[in-house]
């Protein structure tokens, strides 16, 4: 541990005789410029996400499984990855069974090591939930867990995310406080604000760098 002690000792020596600076964090600076009415909140999130090539649909809450089916149909995709242990995963499965959808429902129900090749190359699309949205920046908040693993929103070329209209907050600070993030974060909390992109060649924007080429957000209105 000598590197550790050397570094810390040097830092402490340099700070000798000084006081730590007070915490003068002024939260109004990160909240006041970013406040919206309920309607404009959704409008802003849509506008920002659409500006980075995200497809956004707003629909009554119960209609989303049919919309997912339609999205897959229109793209002529053959399968979709889902999380069977979640509420929305079950709803999707029920819909699939009831309507005899032709796309394969692929359950993420085993460790990645068991099917890495398939997961990396053969999955066309995925459906995941979100724990909220952020109007100020046009972002989704994803809270992956054992039921809905991290790679679901990363590997498939099409990612369909479900966002409850009532869970869109004004800004990052607001959602962080409301959901009390500092009390306990998941292994990997994510903000997603569009499909994967790069501008590394001549600053020309190209979508689908390493993650999803397409992001579709379904904003679910309260029932």
């Amino acid at each position: 541990m000598s590197a550790r002690n050397n570094i810390l000792n040097r830092l402490r020596t340099s700070l000798a005789g000084t006081e730590p600076r007070p915490d003068d964090f002024n939260e109004t600076l990160v909240t006041e410029p970013w406040q919206y009415t309920p309607d404009s909140r959704i409008q802003r999130l849509r506008a920002l996400m659409e500006a980075v090539q995200t497809e956004v649909h707003q629909l009554p809450g119960e209609q989303w499984p049919a919309k997912v089916q339609a999205l897959l149909e229109s793209r002529n995709l053959s399968n979709v990855l889902y999380a069977p242990g979640t509420d929305h995963g079950q709803k999707l499965a029920e819909h699939w069974q009831a309507h005899g959808a032709r796309q394969d429902l692929v359950a993420y129900d085993r460790p990645v090591e068991a099917w890495k090749e398939e997961l990396f190359w053969e999955v066309d699309a995925s459906v995941t939930g979100t724990v909220g949205g952020i109007a100020a920046t046009g972002s989704l908040v994803l809270w992956p867990d054992r039921h809905e693993p991290r790679l679901m929103s990363l590997l498939p070329p099409l990612h369909i995310a479900l966002l409850k209209a009532s869970e869109i907050e004004d800004n990052l600070y607001a959602i962080m406080q409301k959901q009390n993030w500092s009390a306990g974060l998941p292994t990997n909390l994510l903000l997603v604000s569009g499909p994967s992109k790069t501008a590394d060649i001549e600053q020309v924007l190209a979508y689908g760098a390493h993650g999803p080429k397409e992001l579709v957000v379904l904003i679910l209105e309260d029932q």
Binding site: S14, L15, A16, G17, T18, E19, R21
Partner: peptide
């Protein structure tokens, strides 16, 4: 004031 204190702009 402290000569080796961390500075702010």
């Amino acid at each position: 004031a402290a000569p080796n204190a961390t500075r702010v702009a």
